[in-house]
Design a binder for these strands. Structure first.
Lengths: 114, 114
DNA sequence: TTGATACTTAACTATTGACCTAAGTATCGT
DNA sequence: ACGATACTTAGGTCAATAGTTAAGTATCAA
Protein backbone atom coordinates (compact mmCIF):
# COMPACT_ATOMS: atom_id res chain seq x y z
CA UNK A 1 0.00 0.00 0.00
CA UNK A 2 1.91 3.00 -1.28
CA UNK A 3 1.73 5.68 1.41
CA UNK A 4 2.88 8.53 -0.85
CA UNK A 5 -0.65 8.63 -2.19
CA UNK A 6 -1.96 9.98 1.13
CA UNK A 7 -1.02 13.61 0.47
CA UNK A 8 -2.00 13.35 -3.19
CA UNK A 9 -5.57 12.32 -2.44
CA UNK A 10 -5.74 14.75 0.49
CA UNK A 11 -4.61 17.60 -1.76
CA UNK A 12 -7.24 16.78 -4.37
CA UNK A 13 -10.06 16.53 -1.84
CA UNK A 14 -10.39 20.31 -1.93
CA UNK A 15 -12.22 21.98 -4.84
CA UNK A 16 -9.91 24.99 -4.81
CA UNK A 17 -6.90 22.76 -5.23
CA UNK A 18 -8.56 20.63 -7.90
CA UNK A 19 -9.36 23.78 -9.84
CA UNK A 20 -5.73 24.81 -9.61
CA UNK A 21 -4.67 21.44 -10.98
CA UNK A 22 -7.21 21.72 -13.77
CA UNK A 23 -5.89 25.16 -14.60
CA UNK A 24 -2.29 23.97 -14.57
CA UNK A 25 -3.13 21.09 -16.86
CA UNK A 26 -3.45 23.80 -19.52
CA UNK A 27 0.04 25.10 -18.78
CA UNK A 28 2.13 26.93 -16.13
CA UNK A 29 0.91 30.05 -14.34
CA UNK A 30 2.00 32.54 -11.68
CA UNK A 31 0.67 32.52 -8.12
CA UNK A 32 -1.45 35.64 -8.52
CA UNK A 33 -2.76 34.43 -11.85
CA UNK A 34 -3.85 31.19 -10.19
CA UNK A 35 -5.32 33.04 -7.20
CA UNK A 36 -7.46 35.40 -9.28
CA UNK A 37 -10.59 33.20 -9.54
CA UNK A 38 -10.79 32.72 -5.78
CA UNK A 39 -12.40 34.90 -3.14
CA UNK A 40 -10.09 33.95 -0.27
CA UNK A 41 -7.10 35.91 0.98
CA UNK A 42 -3.81 35.42 -0.79
CA UNK A 43 -2.08 33.80 2.22
CA UNK A 44 -4.91 31.31 2.41
CA UNK A 45 -4.58 30.56 -1.27
CA UNK A 46 -0.82 30.21 -1.10
CA UNK A 47 -1.35 27.66 1.67
CA UNK A 48 -3.32 25.60 -0.83
CA UNK A 49 -0.45 25.82 -3.27
CA UNK A 50 1.80 24.62 -0.47
CA UNK A 51 -0.37 21.57 0.05
CA UNK A 52 -0.27 20.82 -3.68
CA UNK A 53 3.47 21.26 -3.87
CA UNK A 54 4.10 19.14 -0.75
CA UNK A 55 2.01 16.39 -2.31
CA UNK A 56 4.21 16.44 -5.39
CA UNK A 57 1.33 17.29 -7.70
CA UNK A 58 2.80 20.65 -8.67
CA UNK A 59 6.19 22.26 -8.75
CA UNK A 60 7.24 25.89 -8.80
CA UNK A 61 10.15 28.18 -9.58
CA UNK A 62 10.68 31.76 -8.62
CA UNK A 63 12.13 34.24 -11.06
CA UNK A 64 12.33 37.79 -9.78
CA UNK A 65 9.22 38.43 -7.76
CA UNK A 66 7.10 36.00 -9.71
CA UNK A 67 6.65 32.36 -8.75
CA UNK A 68 5.56 30.18 -11.62
CA UNK A 69 3.75 26.91 -10.89
CA UNK A 70 3.47 23.89 -13.14
CA UNK A 71 1.88 20.46 -13.06
CA UNK A 72 4.03 17.51 -12.05
CA UNK A 73 2.77 14.77 -14.37
CA UNK A 74 4.58 11.97 -12.55
CA UNK A 75 2.40 12.36 -9.45
CA UNK A 76 -0.71 12.28 -11.58
CA UNK A 77 0.52 9.12 -13.27
CA UNK A 78 1.06 7.40 -9.92
CA UNK A 79 -2.44 8.40 -8.91
CA UNK A 80 -3.85 7.03 -12.12
CA UNK A 81 -1.90 3.85 -11.55
CA UNK A 82 -3.63 3.22 -8.25
CA UNK A 83 -7.08 3.92 -9.66
CA UNK A 84 -6.44 1.68 -12.62
CA UNK A 85 -5.33 -1.08 -10.28
CA UNK A 86 -8.48 -1.12 -8.15
CA UNK A 87 -10.59 -0.70 -11.24
CA UNK A 88 -9.20 -3.97 -12.45
CA UNK A 89 -7.72 -2.06 -15.33
CA UNK A 90 -4.80 -4.37 -15.92
CA UNK A 91 -6.99 -7.39 -15.73
CA UNK A 92 -9.26 -6.20 -18.52
CA UNK A 93 -6.68 -4.38 -20.65
CA UNK A 94 -3.95 -6.99 -20.38
CA UNK A 95 -6.63 -9.59 -20.92
CA UNK A 96 -7.58 -7.87 -24.15
CA UNK A 97 -3.93 -7.54 -25.09
CA UNK A 98 -3.13 -11.21 -24.61
CA UNK A 99 -6.30 -12.15 -26.47
CA UNK A 100 -5.09 -10.01 -29.30
CA UNK A 101 -1.58 -11.45 -29.18
CA UNK A 102 -2.95 -14.99 -29.23
CA UNK A 103 -5.21 -14.19 -32.15
CA UNK A 104 -2.23 -12.78 -34.05
CA UNK A 105 -0.18 -15.85 -33.22
CA UNK A 106 -2.95 -18.10 -34.42
CA UNK A 107 -3.43 -16.04 -37.55
CA UNK A 108 0.30 -16.13 -38.39
CA UNK A 109 0.34 -19.90 -38.05
CA UNK A 110 -2.63 -20.25 -40.34
CA UNK A 111 -0.97 -18.01 -42.91
CA UNK A 112 2.21 -20.08 -42.85
CA UNK A 113 0.24 -23.31 -43.22
CA UNK A 114 -1.93 -22.14 -46.09
CA UNK B 1 -15.77 21.52 -11.41
CA UNK B 2 -17.69 18.50 -10.14
CA UNK B 3 -18.02 18.84 -6.38
CA UNK B 4 -19.05 15.24 -5.76
CA UNK B 5 -15.38 14.37 -6.06
CA UNK B 6 -14.62 16.09 -2.75
CA UNK B 7 -15.70 13.18 -0.54
CA UNK B 8 -14.21 10.63 -2.94
CA UNK B 9 -10.72 12.11 -2.76
CA UNK B 10 -11.10 12.75 0.97
CA UNK B 11 -12.09 9.13 1.53
CA UNK B 12 -9.09 7.85 -0.39
CA UNK B 13 -6.62 10.09 1.40
CA UNK B 14 -6.53 7.59 4.25
CA UNK B 15 -4.44 4.41 3.90
CA UNK B 16 -6.92 2.33 5.89
CA UNK B 17 -9.71 3.28 3.53
CA UNK B 18 -7.58 2.73 0.44
CA UNK B 19 -6.74 -0.74 1.70
CA UNK B 20 -10.43 -1.44 2.14
CA UNK B 21 -11.09 -0.35 -1.43
CA UNK B 22 -8.22 -2.52 -2.64
CA UNK B 23 -9.66 -5.45 -0.74
CA UNK B 24 -13.14 -4.85 -2.10
CA UNK B 25 -11.82 -4.70 -5.65
CA UNK B 26 -11.34 -8.46 -5.20
CA UNK B 27 -14.98 -8.91 -4.22
CA UNK B 28 -17.51 -8.18 -1.43
CA UNK B 29 -16.78 -8.76 2.24
CA UNK B 30 -18.38 -8.40 5.67
CA UNK B 31 -17.52 -5.60 8.11
CA UNK B 32 -15.58 -7.82 10.50
CA UNK B 33 -13.79 -9.52 7.64
CA UNK B 34 -12.70 -6.11 6.37
CA UNK B 35 -11.74 -4.96 9.86
CA UNK B 36 -9.52 -7.96 10.62
CA UNK B 37 -6.24 -6.57 9.18
CA UNK B 38 -6.47 -3.40 11.24
CA UNK B 39 -5.34 -2.74 14.79
CA UNK B 40 -7.94 -0.09 15.61
CA UNK B 41 -11.21 -0.55 17.49
CA UNK B 42 -14.22 -1.74 15.56
CA UNK B 43 -16.19 1.51 16.02
CA UNK B 44 -13.24 3.43 14.64
CA UNK B 45 -13.05 1.11 11.67
CA UNK B 46 -16.77 1.27 11.00
CA UNK B 47 -16.42 5.03 10.89
CA UNK B 48 -14.01 4.57 8.00
CA UNK B 49 -16.57 2.41 6.23
CA UNK B 50 -19.09 5.19 6.80
CA UNK B 51 -16.79 7.69 5.11
CA UNK B 52 -16.35 5.34 2.16
CA UNK B 53 -20.06 4.72 1.87
CA UNK B 54 -20.95 8.42 2.15
CA UNK B 55 -18.49 9.12 -0.64
CA UNK B 56 -20.25 6.63 -2.86
CA UNK B 57 -17.15 4.48 -3.29
CA UNK B 58 -18.71 1.50 -1.56
CA UNK B 59 -22.19 0.22 -0.85
CA UNK B 60 -23.46 -2.21 1.76
CA UNK B 61 -26.41 -4.40 2.60
CA UNK B 62 -27.31 -6.00 5.87
CA UNK B 63 -28.68 -9.51 6.00
CA UNK B 64 -29.29 -10.82 9.49
CA UNK B 65 -26.49 -9.55 11.70
CA UNK B 66 -23.95 -9.38 8.88
CA UNK B 67 -23.35 -6.30 6.79
CA UNK B 68 -21.73 -7.03 3.45
CA UNK B 69 -19.81 -4.27 1.66
CA UNK B 70 -19.02 -4.03 -2.02
CA UNK B 71 -17.24 -1.67 -4.36
CA UNK B 72 -19.29 0.88 -6.27
CA UNK B 73 -17.53 0.94 -9.63
CA UNK B 74 -19.38 4.03 -10.87
CA UNK B 75 -17.67 6.27 -8.30
CA UNK B 76 -14.31 4.87 -9.27
CA UNK B 77 -15.07 5.56 -12.91
CA UNK B 78 -15.95 9.18 -12.19
CA UNK B 79 -12.70 9.53 -10.29
CA UNK B 80 -10.78 8.05 -13.18
CA UNK B 81 -12.57 10.43 -15.51
CA UNK B 82 -11.30 13.45 -13.64
CA UNK B 83 -7.74 12.15 -13.52
CA UNK B 84 -7.80 11.31 -17.21
CA UNK B 85 -9.05 14.79 -17.97
CA UNK B 86 -6.25 16.65 -16.19
CA UNK B 87 -3.76 14.18 -17.55
CA UNK B 88 -4.78 15.24 -21.00
CA UNK B 89 -5.71 11.63 -21.50
CA UNK B 90 -8.01 12.14 -24.45
CA UNK B 91 -5.57 14.47 -26.09
CA UNK B 92 -2.73 11.94 -25.98
CA UNK B 93 -4.75 8.77 -26.54
CA UNK B 94 -6.87 10.15 -29.33
CA UNK B 95 -3.73 11.70 -30.74
CA UNK B 96 -2.07 8.30 -30.77
CA UNK B 97 -5.17 6.79 -32.31
CA UNK B 98 -5.31 9.25 -35.17
CA UNK B 99 -1.58 8.86 -35.71
CA UNK B 100 -2.14 5.15 -35.97
CA UNK B 101 -5.10 5.57 -38.29
CA UNK B 102 -3.10 7.86 -40.52
CA UNK B 103 -0.19 5.46 -40.63
CA UNK B 104 -2.57 2.65 -41.61
CA UNK B 105 -4.07 4.81 -44.26
CA UNK B 106 -0.66 5.65 -45.65
CA UNK B 107 0.41 2.03 -45.50
CA UNK B 108 -2.70 0.87 -47.32
CA UNK B 109 -2.08 3.35 -50.10
CA UNK B 110 1.50 2.20 -50.50
CA UNK B 111 0.40 -1.40 -50.66
CA UNK B 112 -2.15 -0.64 -53.34
CA UNK B 113 0.43 1.26 -55.36
CA UNK B 114 3.15 -1.38 -55.19
C1' DT C 1 14.63 56.42 -5.08
C1' DT C 2 10.12 55.73 -4.45
C1' DG C 3 5.76 53.47 -4.97
C1' DA C 4 3.40 49.60 -6.41
C1' DT C 5 3.48 44.63 -7.13
C1' DA C 6 4.07 39.87 -5.79
C1' DC C 7 4.40 37.27 -2.66
C1' DT C 8 5.95 35.60 2.46
C1' DT C 9 5.80 35.18 7.49
C1' DA C 10 3.54 35.25 11.85
C1' DA C 11 0.02 34.59 15.02
C1' DC C 12 -4.48 33.40 16.04
C1' DT C 13 -9.49 31.06 15.70
C1' DA C 14 -12.90 27.64 14.34
C1' DT C 15 -14.02 23.42 12.45
C1' DT C 16 -13.23 18.74 11.15
C1' DG C 17 -11.12 14.14 11.45
C1' DA C 18 -9.37 10.07 13.67
C1' DC C 19 -9.28 7.72 17.29
C1' DC C 20 -10.83 5.90 22.03
C1' DT C 21 -14.03 3.42 25.76
C1' DA C 22 -18.37 1.96 27.30
C1' DA C 23 -22.73 0.38 26.69
C1' DG C 24 -26.65 -1.09 23.68
C1' DT C 25 -29.30 -3.92 20.02
C1' DA C 26 -30.24 -7.57 17.01
C1' DT C 27 -29.42 -12.16 15.27
C1' DC C 28 -27.76 -16.90 15.20
C1' DG C 29 -26.52 -21.50 17.07
C1' DT C 30 -27.45 -24.88 20.60
C1' DA D 1 -34.00 -19.39 26.32
C1' DC D 2 -29.14 -18.11 26.58
C1' DG D 3 -24.60 -17.07 25.27
C1' DA D 4 -21.83 -15.61 21.66
C1' DT D 5 -21.38 -12.91 17.49
C1' DA D 6 -21.76 -8.79 14.65
C1' DC D 7 -22.29 -4.78 14.63
C1' DT D 8 -24.30 0.19 16.42
C1' DT D 9 -24.76 4.27 19.31
C1' DA D 10 -23.09 7.70 22.46
C1' DG D 11 -19.80 10.67 24.17
C1' DG D 12 -15.39 12.44 24.66
C1' DT D 13 -10.11 13.64 23.52
C1' DC D 14 -6.55 15.51 20.63
C1' DA D 15 -4.25 17.00 16.50
C1' DA D 16 -4.60 18.78 11.95
C1' DT D 17 -6.86 21.81 8.43
C1' DA D 18 -8.81 26.02 6.51
C1' DG D 19 -9.42 30.25 7.10
C1' DT D 20 -8.45 35.09 9.02
C1' DT D 21 -5.68 39.86 9.63
C1' DA D 22 -1.47 42.31 10.01
C1' DA D 23 3.01 43.21 8.94
C1' DG D 24 7.32 42.15 6.41
C1' DT D 25 10.61 41.40 2.21
C1' DA D 26 12.07 41.61 -2.39
C1' DT D 27 11.65 43.09 -7.13
C1' DC D 28 10.22 45.98 -10.97
C1' DA D 29 8.93 50.38 -13.26
C1' DA D 30 9.09 55.20 -13.58
Amino acid sequence: MPKYLDPVFAALSDPTRRQVVERLSQGPASVSELAKPFAMSLPAFVQHLGVLEDSGLIGSRKQGRVRTCYLERAALDRLDGWVAQVQGYWETRLGALTDYAQARHQQNREERES
